[in-house]
Design a protein around this nucleic acid. Sequence first.
DNA 1: TTATAAATTGAATGAATGTTCAATTAATTT
DNA 2: AAATTAATTGAACATTCATTCAATTTATAA
Lengths: 205, 205
Amino acid sequence: MGRKSLKEARKKEIIKVFYGLAKKNGLENTSIAKIAAKMEINPSLIIHYFQTREDLVYGLVDYILDKYKLIYKVSAAHSKDSRKALLEIIGNIFSKKWNALFDDGLFYGCYAMAFHDAKVRDLYKKLLDSLREMLIGHIEQCREDGVLDIEDVETVADNIFVLIDGAYFYLSLVSDKNEYEHRLAKYRQQALSILHLKELSEVAG
Amino acid sequence: MGRKSLKEARKKEIIKVFYGLAKKNGLENTSIAKIAAKMEINPSLIIHYFQTREDLVYGLVDYILDKYKLIYKVSAAHSKDSRKALLEIIGNIFSKKWNALFDDGLFYGCYAMAFHDAKVRDLYKKLLDSLREMLIGHIEQCREDGVLDIEDVETVADNIFVLIDGAYFYLSLVSDKNEYEHRLAKYRQQALSILHLKELSEVAG
DNA sequence: TTATAAATTGAATGAATGTTCAATTAATTT
DNA sequence: AAATTAATTGAACATTCATTCAATTTATAA
């Protein structure tokens, strides 16, 4: 009996507001009090759900990494065709839509925490490793299906993986829209070149 | 007349202590008071030299980016031989010594600030662009000297540039020494492959 | 030695921080 | 209706924060 718990839903609400404010003003300028003010609730309610600010930040990191994971999602339509699946992933990764859906500033802000917080470090490490494994899996599948001419799958996957991180890193500073798209296209090309593939025109959406 | 100014030297001292503390505890956990305590001086002295905390942070960013620039330095010995100069740069970049000399955590922490601070953004953008230009210059020189078989210099430079950023990004999370060195070697190999060069055994130090 | 200018201290400020605890309000079950 | 459980508030806490200002110490040149 008693009232039914809103715990999980409420925690997510709080983290979303946290995310929004931190995106605008930076992680270091976003306090519990400010989140509470924005939500028009009492600061102690936030502490009620997350016992400490530290836990709240861990929640944000989870939230951010979950979003990041989406970049590697494959649509059901291509899940049977390994070649199309891989091309979709490459196409997705090097598409400008992430610019709107995902905030790089927070991604790097939280990443910086990994250097003095073991828990954050583990979260990032595990995520990145799982994404790389996923990429290896897709490429391996393509090779088995005979649609990809590659010797060392791991090395190829690794080079693409690093290309992604580096591309995202630099692109975050490019504000000119045309330059942004131009570079994005170049990086995609480079990814395909690493895979020994030509430019993709067949796979759209 | 009057006392001679220690301003610049003192500012640098303060920033070095700032750097040291922020490296250990994170940027967000390093206050003016803590820096002052570590130096056994009065907090107001720090404000005397840097008018606001904001300015102090800008000073730190400058300091960090200056260090980062060193990665691209070419020793005098190789400055006449474009091929050796390029190989030295590649060798330098993908060497583990930066792990000790340079703190990636702060680099990313400050980088995150670029997303909501125009000044920091400009500092990073200008530095990265100048480094890329530098790389283009070296590669272009090699091509002119006929020691490099490359069509599109800018694209090649860009791909290496992005490889560097991506490599640094992921390597920051690799704590196992053997894996670290193994990956580093792989990334260097990939850089040379982009340049259409074989593994370098001739250039040491 | 005296004037000068910079270095440095020390005390004080108000605002914001994260966190606590007890009290109250609002659902849901018996 | 009564009991129960969770949501939420509100007041208070000690700490820390960046910053201020006036006072003092210290070095240098005239």
